[in-house]
């Protein structure tokens, strides 16, 4: 098991290098010269050259790519063109904000999603079920940015209960971003929970558990939910990535100074070092989160653990282990 985790951690390194190459290449061919953008169109060639050297954006594609990758291996994400400070420092400050909001959102999403998913599955084809599935369908159909704006409209403009923007002064500022992000996830989690619970409740081992004389709720919680969790955990893992991306929109709406807003501002200002840093950070965090999810799997589903352990012995490719999820 430990060997598997180490293998997965090592795999993150080539992923990050690959992501860097992809993002670097895309941005390299983007229109707009950061030097002229920073110095104005009338800047002298010498000044432009000096700026490029300072920012490390002089030379050919390969020279710059090499420099970027070397920097990455040393844990240096380059210098922000705008603020002339190391991107990494900027990111760490902002990541705390994004992480805080995302963490609360996913907790909200998991609690709401699993709770209503179970209720909906157990009360299949009742009014409660229709109500919950209907709401979930609305939840996944609502664009996150619009949902955020509607929250502002209701709770700030009409009711005046919550501040419409900002972060860090009061817990009240967290409420709407967390709801905007979390409700979306909860809708997806709810739908998966429902279908997974319906599937599991039909299985023979549920009948066995009932035949043992176990009470209804213990059958649901002890036998059904643990089995139903397997696909739910997959979806939660996927939602973590969606959540990080969703924070871009949410932070833009609620003017929260997190990674998402930093990314949008950097893209608009053609601050490519910062953009690259943001994408890398998000890719890195998603990879770690995916690994955590996969480890959680093995605790829920013992069959996965056997698979990983036998993969160790027979050198099965990792892909084989994953594709059977």
């Amino acid at each position: 098991m430990l060997k598997y985790i180490i293998k997965r951690l090592l795999w993150i390194i080539p992923v990050l290098i690959g992501v860097t190459v992809i993002v670097f290449t895309i941005l390299y061919f983007s229109p707009g010269d950061p030097a002229y953008l920073a110095l104005g169109d009338n800047a002298t060639p010498e000044a432009v050259e000096a700026y490029r050297v300072e920012m490390g954006i002089n030379g050919t594609y390969w020279e710059r790519l090499g420099r970027t990758l070397l920097g990455l291996l040393k844990g240096d994400l380059g210098i922000s063109y705008r603020s002339r400070t190391p991107v990494l420092d900027e990111l760490i400050v902002r990541f705390k904000v994004t992480f805080n909001i995302s963490a609360w959102s996913i907790i909200l999403g998991i609690l709401l999603g699993i709770f209503f998913g179970i209720i909906s599955a157990l009360k299949q084809n009742t009014v409660w079920d229709s109500l919950a599935t209907g709401c979930a369908l609305f939840g996944i159909s609502m664009p996150m940015f619009w949902q955020g704006l509607m929250l502002i409209l209701i709770f700030s403009v009409w009711l005046g209960w919550l501040p419409a923007s900002g972060y860090g002064d009061s817990w009240k500022q967290m409420v709407m971003p967390v709801i905007a992000l979390g409700v979306n996830s909860s809708a997806t989690i709810m739908r998966t929970t429902r279908s997974s619970m319906l599937e599991v409740m039909r299985q023979d081992y549920i009948r066995t558990a009932k035949a043992k004389g176990q009470s209804y709720w213990m059958v649901v919680l002890r036998h059904a939910l643990r089995n139903a969790m397997i696909p739910i955990v997959t979806v939660i893992g996927l939602q973590l990535g969606v959540l990080l991306a969703g924070s871009i929109v949410t932070e833009a709406i609620f003017s929260v100074a997190g990674v998402g807003k930093y990314l949008v501002d950097s893209l608009n200002a053609r601050d490519y070092a910062a953009v690259q840093g943001c994408v890398l950070l998000i890719a890195f965090v998603s990879a770690i989160l995916n690994l955590i999810v996969d480890v959680i799997y093995t605790y829920i589903d013992p069959r996965m653990k056997t698979m990983y352990e036998s993969a160790k012995v027979f050198h099965l490719p990792k892909k084989g282990a994953k594709s059977s999820v």
């Binding site: 023979d204 081992y205 066995t208 558990a209 036998h223 643990r226 089995n227 589903d301 013992p302 069959r303």
Partner: peptide, 8 residues
């Protein structure tokens, strides 16, 4: 299929 796969 009659035994719960996630319990010993």
């Amino acid at each position: 299929t009659s035994l719960n796969p996630v319990m010993t």
